[in-house]
């Protein structure tokens, strides 16, 4: 394949990675932005979302789309509920102390991981995509007779991957509208900016924290449900999205939602392109190097704000 079509393919693969990453990182960023909690167990919400999707789709007979739709509803709801319970039982009791919540979420990470290993075993579990037609992509090239469309061999993408990109974009727009246009979003933003004063205006900060922690986990689970027909569910799959989400959140600016989306696109696209032309390991090395450079030259990240 020529360079141009090859690059288009890499960009499309990168967009799929970026879409999943923006959902997962958005959850982490939301939790840090509002609660100031560094949730080390966030990758396990992703892993549990994927395992739940495999489990739910296995229960539903018939067309794979039926199981997928039910998994896309059930997995985020179950993970959200588990996260709310974790917040009430653990984080709230630690008074959201930044240091102790890191240790506590490390504990939650191991509990989730080992419980999954004991319940579902160590094997990777596939989930059938709800639809998966291969779509050949056209490429415009100049020939002796002028510009013409043709279909290079290998330049194609599945309909499911295009669906993942569109679904992630829709979910992100929905989250953005909830945060900026609804009363619930207003309460979250007020709590994010000054939780003590928020209480003096009747905002139940503890409830806001629980809901935000639940939404963060639900977003990670939703990302996992979308990805699991492409990658298999496995009890150790939470590590990489956690690392990449931290990279995205640091580059984008801690707590900045637009920064998170921009950084996810940057990391996802570079991961896709470098993985296709070089190797996935090099892509991770460059992403980690980028974080180091951001921490040195712009510690607040791309769109992070200095404390008032």
């Amino acid at each position: 394949m020529q360079f141009g079509p090859h690059l288009l393919l890499a960009i499309l693969e990168g967009l799929v990675t970026a879409s999943i990453l923006s959902l997962t990182a958005m959850g982490l960023s939301l939790v840090f932005g509002v609660m100031r909690v560094v949730n080390v167990a966030h990758g396990e919400a992703y892993m549990l979302g994927a395992v739940l999707a495999w489990w739910v789709t296995g229960l539903i007979a018939g067309h794979p789309a039926a199981g997928f739709v039910i998994a896309a509803i059930a997995a985020p709801l179950i993970m959200g509920a588990l996260a709310v319970a974790s917040d009430r039982l653990v984080l709230k009791r630690l008074n959201y102390d930044p240091d102790r919540t890191i240790v506590a979420t490390i504990g939650l990470l191991y509990i989730a991981q080992q419980t999954t290993l004991m319940s579902f075993g160590p094997d990777a579990r596939p989930v059938e995509p709800p639809f998966n037609q291969r779509i050949a992509l056209p490429w415009l090239e100049r020939t002796e007779e002028g510009w013409a469309w043709f279909y290079p061999w290998g330049l194609s993408i599945t309909s499911y991957k295009l669906f993942v990109i569109a679904a992630a974009a829709l979910i992100l727009v929905a989250i953005w509208l909830i945060i900026t246009r609804t009363r619930a979003g207003l309460l979250m933003r007020a709590t994010q900016q000054d939780s003590e004063t928020a209480q003096a205006f009747g905002i139940p900060v503890g409830t806001v924290y629980s809901v935000v922690f639940g939404i963060g986990a639900a977003l990670a689970a939703l990302g996992a449900v979308l990805v699991v027909p492409i990658q298999q569910a496995h009890y150790l799959m939470g590590g990489e999205p956690l690392l990449l989400s931290f990279i995205v959140v640091i580059i984008g600016g801690l707590g900045s939602l637009p920064g998170t989306v921009i950084a996810a696109l940057l990391i996802g696209l570079s991961d896709g392109i470098i993985s296709v032309f070089f190797s996935p390991t090099l892509a991770k090395i460059i992403a980690t190097l980028l974080v180091a450079m951001v921490l040195v030259f712009r510690p607040r990240g791309l769109l992070g704000k200095a404390p008032a």
């Binding site: 009363r183 207003l186 309460l187 933003r189 007020a190 900016q193 000054d194 003590e196 004063t197 928020a198 003096a200 205006f201 009747g202 905002i203 008032a308």
Partner: peptide, 23 residues
């Protein structure tokens, strides 16, 4: 509060809305 303690990134309209929502 002392020092105003406003929600700095909320607009004036949103800040008033927070106050109105309280009761």
């Amino acid at each position: 509060p002392q020092g105003r303690r406003l929600f700095r990134e909320l607009t004036v309209a949103e800040t008033i809305e927070v106050g109105l929502m309280t009761r």
